[in-house]
Simulated scan of single mutants.
Amino acid sequence: LLNQLRTAVITDEPFVTDCKKLASNEKEETDKKRPNLWIEINDADEIQLILPKLPVLDNVEYMDENMSFAVTDPDVPEMTFELFEQDARDILNHKIPNDLENWVSEKELAAFKKRIPDIEELETYLRKWKMSLCMENAVELKITLHNDGKAMAEEIYVDMDEPENVWVIDEDEWESLSKFSTISDPFHAARQKKAIHKIPSLEMQNAFDCASRVFLASGLAYPSELMNVPVSLLTPFNKDFYRRVEDGDVVLHLDKLLQGRMVEFKKIYMIPKKVGEADIKVAYQCRQFPDAVVGKIKVEVLAEDTE
């Protein structure tokens, strides 16, 4: 040690140079042993969905100036969401059109208010109604998180925003939609009764009676029985992590992901809402990299080809 001190004093070169070099090499080696995270969604650069043709009021015959009507096609008694919503709001506000007072059943009104007691419940019902009609065209999101680095990643969080052209839901809401049933609109039923009463022709009377029976049996012309859920969309849940879907926004959390490993998050569903393009914004981070990495993937909803 004394010899090294003398040499350092005489030559003016610090004898710890080699030690610093060793520390530098260790740091470089440590830098190489870092996690490297990246995300894959459905093994694609873009997700496409098809929006089915929703029911429209295209098979209705207007009967008079009060817009009373009857369904002209007994096999397809369709209805618009807008008309149902307006009727529901009038019912909740105790507004019964004068021309329908004699045709509306108090029992049907009471049953309706029991199912939809307020405007908030109405909005929820309309949302579920539309979503249930588009369920068959849903896509299950498979979000795969990879760690290609040389070290384990810890405390990993992934956040995804719901695009405006789709609904994103979890398995609980999916199961709820599979059990969705429609509610009969008392005003619609009253209009049918009134229109049928005005038709003089016995033949037309019988036709509309048939339409009325079909309508009343099916609520709003959509089956009340449970819908069949494709088994392939329901996948086992991995308990090593959690995922939360709230108002369409997805939050995923994973305690750790070993080097060279991957994990797949499932049971998240995307349902088409409206035609157009939008982006899913994805942000992810971990303890080793607290600054979030942000990316996006395009989601395109196309109109159903009815030809």
Rank of each mutant, 00 (worst) to 15 (best):
A190R: 02
R127C: 11
M204F: 11
S178L: 03
F215I: 10
I156R: 04
D161S: 14
A189N: 05
M160G: 03
D185G: 04
A153N: 03
A153T: 09
S201K: 06
A195D: 02
K130N: 07
F112W: 06
A221N: 05
L226C: 15
E136H: 13
E140G: 09
L122Q: 01
I116F: 00
K130V: 08
I156C: 03
L226R: 15
D185F: 04
N137M: 07
S232I: 08
V139E: 08
S218D: 05
C210M: 08
V158G: 01
L220T: 11
A110T: 08
A207P: 01
E140D: 14
E225N: 12
N98V: 06
F187Y: 15
A211M: 02
D161R: 14
K113C: 13
E225I: 12
L216A: 15
M204C: 02
A138N: 06
N228E: 12
L109G: 06
A190P: 03
K150D: 10
V168D: 06
K113N: 12
N137P: 01
E106V: 08
E173H: 11
E225P: 00
M152E: 07
F187M: 12
H197T: 12
A189G: 06
D99V: 14
F208K: 02
V168W: 01
V139A: 13
W174N: 00
H94Q: 04
A151L: 05
R115S: 13
K95T: 04
S132L: 12
T182M: 05
R213Q: 09
Y125D: 02
F180S: 07
N137Y: 15
V166C: 09
L145F: 06
E108A: 13
E120R: 03
G219Y: 02
L141M: 11
G149T: 03
D99P: 03
S184R: 04
E154T: 13
E225H: 13
K107V: 09
M135F: 05
I183D: 06
P223A: 15
P163M: 15
E120W: 02
L100G: 05
A138M: 08
E123R: 10
K198A: 14
F112Q: 07
W103I: 13
D209A: 04
L141R: 08
L216S: 10
F180K: 07
S181D: 02
V229H: 03
A110F: 10
I119Y: 09
G219F: 00
A190D: 02
E175P: 00
R127G: 14
K142W: 04
H146F: 06
H188G: 09
V139K: 15
A153K: 12
R127H: 07
A111D: 09
M227H: 13
S181H: 14
E171R: 11
V231H: 04
P223M: 12
D148E: 10
F208R: 00
K142D: 11
E155I: 07
N165C: 13
N147F: 02
N102P: 06
A138K: 04
S176I: 07
E175S: 11
E171K: 05
R213D: 04
E140I: 09
Q205I: 03
M131Y: 01
A138S: 08
